[in-house]
Each structure stands twice: as C-alpha cells, then as structure tokens.
Amino acid sequence: MSSQLLELYVFVLAAFTGYMVISRVPALLHTPLMAATNAIAGISLVGSLIAAGAAQNRVATILGFVAVVAATSNIVGGFIIVDRMLKMFKREDKKK
C-alpha cells in the first residue's frame, strides 16, 4: 500500500474519532472547545520547524520563521487561555 493511501486511512479514522469524541462535548464548554482545538491546530508548528530549519533556501527559511512565530504564539496563548477559561467553571457546592 502506498504511503499516500495510508495517510488517507489515518485521515478518515482521525476525523471519525474526532467526530465521535467532540460531538459529546456539552454546549456549556463549546467556547473552551474552540479555543482548545485552535491551540491543538498550532501543531502546524511541526511543519514550520522543518521549513525554518532545513536550510533549503532563504525564502523557505523566512516563510518558515514567520510560520514558527505564528504557530508558537498560537500554542502558548491558546493553552493558557483554555486553562484560564476552564478554571472559571465551578460547581455550586464549592461556595457552601
């Protein structure tokens, strides 16, 4: 089986898993969910690191560098903000 076909397998199964897991997140937590998946989408840092560090040509290095900045700030800011948000959700009995 070609590697591209394998990648297609991974894609379909991951999308399916994502659908099953995420459709069970309650409306209460939909904003943290968006923030969380956005922070996880900062994974494009992985591609950016390779582009910035492979020393292929100057254009790729600079584009990669900008991508690293964008993805890193998204990851750092994203995970901090999700944590801040989730920290706020409290149950009633704590107050008593």
Binding site: A52, T61, F65, T72, I75, V76, F79
Partner: peptide, 17 residues
C-alpha cells in the same frame, strides 16, 4: 531561526493568553 521564532512566538503568545 527556529530558536528565534520560538522565542518571539512565546513573547507574543504569552500576553495573548
């Protein structure tokens, strides 16, 4: 470039969070 980008990203991202 990687180290530079990550440092800059953290500097921008931290206050954003």
């Amino acid at each position: 470039w990687i180290v530079g980008g990550i440092v800059l990203g953290v500097i921008i991202g931290y206050p954003m969070g």
